[in-house]
Design a binder for these strands. Structure first.
Length: 277
DNA sequence: ATGCAGGCGCGCA
DNA sequence: TGCGCGCCTGCA
């Protein structure tokens, strides 16, 4: 068991939709499956009290996952200087963080997320994990880690269907084949600039701009890519009257206005529109 | 109960 | 290049 400082908004960051593997317990604590272990987090005013199925490097692990290494205050103040509306949004989003999730897990999870709702996405991911992920016992309950590439590759198209991924079954297969052809595919993305990284991810049939952007921001912690969805379009059109409410103009606007932090800026707008306002 | 939920690929102009 | 359509499926 460890304690870490409660200096961000765990609950709203979890609920914002960036990760799919957490459970709210009856005692208001949260149980999350983080890569190689299960953790339970009790929220106190000053501390998060964290217990885990594995104590090994627990503090390091948790601090990395919940992004204690990034100085969000600096980003909030940089963004606040850009315009008045962003100043208001950033202030409200101060506690919102983008986690450091596993690349492979993000890659597969966001393929499943397309034209889908959070509940069913979580369901499918849990089923996949149950079918081939490692079983872990924690507090007398069983949990299943997200499968590794090797584990997931053992499944066939019917198995994916059984997990409820629907028509995305073939997209997952394509994504796995990409790694089969080039085992360091996901690592190589890291070295590319954002434009090339998007292009490379989109070379997988089943990954379009939206999914590729989600993978880069949530799996690679790239703060200069922005998944644009209806929430963001709504927010921009309500607050920036001279920007046309479509993908292209919003993308151009965000790049020019917020530069390297455009992804974080758009994420703040998304979060504000969907969860705070 | 029909359209939607954090899209995508395809076929057609 | 741009647009409309179908697609799994559970849920409001």
């Amino acid at each position: 068991m460890i304690k870490i400082k409660n200096d961000f908004d765990l609950v709203s960051s979890l609920l914002s939709g960036q990760c799919f593997r957490f459970i709210k317990e009856e005692n208001e604590s949260y149980t999350c499956i983080l890569d190689d272990r299960v953790v339970n987090i009790i929220v106190n005013n000053d501390y998060y009290v964290i217990s885990s199925s594995s104590e090994e490097n627990l503090e390091e692990k948790v601090k990395y996952y919940f992004d204690y290494c990034t100085n969000y205050d600096k980003y909030v103040s940089l963004l606040s200087n850009k315009d008045d509306y962003m100043k208001k949004v950033a202030k409200e989003c101060k506690g919102y963080k983008i986690f450091n999730q596993d690349k492979f897990e993000t890659y597969i999870s966001y393929i499943i997320s397309q034209n889908n709702n959070v509940k069913r996405i979580s369901n499918s991911i849990n089923e996949l994990s149950k079918m081939c992920g490692k079983k872990v016992f924690f507090n007398n309950k069983e949990y299943y880690l997200f499968p590794t590439y090797q584990e997931l590759s053992k499944l066939n198209i019917d198995d994916f269907r059984k997990c409820g991924v629907g028509f995305r079954d073939k997209y997952i297969i394509n994504a796995l084949e990409k790694i089969k052809d080039n085992p360091s595919f996901l690592e190589e993305i890291e070295k590319l600039n954002t434009e090339d990284a998007l292009k490379e991810l989109m070379s997988v049939k089943g990954i379009g701009l939206k999914v590729a952007s989600c993978i880069l921001i949530f799996g690679y912690h790239r703060f200069d890519v922005f998944p644009i969805d209806t929430w963001v379009i709504q927010n921009i059109s309500e607050n920036y009257k001279d920007i046309k409410p479509n993908q292209k103009s919003i993308s151009l606007f965000a790049k020019e206005k917020y530069g390297d932090l455009s992804g974080l800026a758009i994420q703040y707008m998304y979060h504000y529109q969907r969860n705070i306002k």
